[in-house]
């Protein structure tokens, strides 16, 4: 068994030119490791949606990625406003993104649903006023 690879990223708030750096770096790392391209695509998309959420809604946050022999675990956490109603936030089409974010092409209300769709496991917890914590895994 190989030792796990651990990657950590800080996502700045409201900087959409930098959001995507974690997913791009993670994608490149998985590619170097020879991981199946379909699994890499799922990791990259789920992670990018997470990065965008951190930038739009949480004023930034952190991402820790652990790449094991057969699973990639992504932990996203922030100290943002939290999510009052998680089932509502998880429903397709629901979005609280402001108009200027929508004008960039975001805010379709598909971020969290896409993360769940592409991950093999997805767990979310959130406390209003404290922040949100997401752990998702993709089998690789």
């Amino acid at each position: 068994m190989n030792e796990d690879i651990k990657l950590s990223y800080t996502v700045p708030g409201d900087d959409f030119t930098r959001a995507g750096e974690a997913s791009a770096h993670c994608k490149a790392t998985l590619k170097k490791l020879g991981v199946d391209p379909a699994a890499i695509r799922r990791v990259a998309i789920a992670l990018y949606e997470g990065e965008i959420n951190l930038a739009i809604h949480a004023g930034g946050g952190n991402i820790d990625v652990t790449i094991g022999d057969d699973v990639c675990t992504m932990h996203l956490y922030d100290k943002g406003p939290g999510i009052p109603d998680i089932p509502l936030a998880m429903s397709e089409g629901y979005s609280t993104a402001p108009d200027e974010i929508r004008s960039l092409g975001f805010g379709a209300g598909m971020g969290l649903p896409n993360m769940k769709k592409y991950a093999d496991t997805f767990e979310i917890s959130s406390v209003v006023g404290e922040g949100t914590d997401i752990v998702m895994t993709v089998n690789i």
Partner: peptide, 22 residues
């Protein structure tokens, strides 16, 4: 963008009006 990420297949020609870095 999220619809594209949720639906699009590999090797797709993506037609859009979104001319930004995202």
């Amino acid at each position: 963008l999220s619809h594209v990420m949720g639906q699009v297949l590999e090797d797709t020609c993506w037609c859009t009006v979104m001319g930004n870095i995202n």
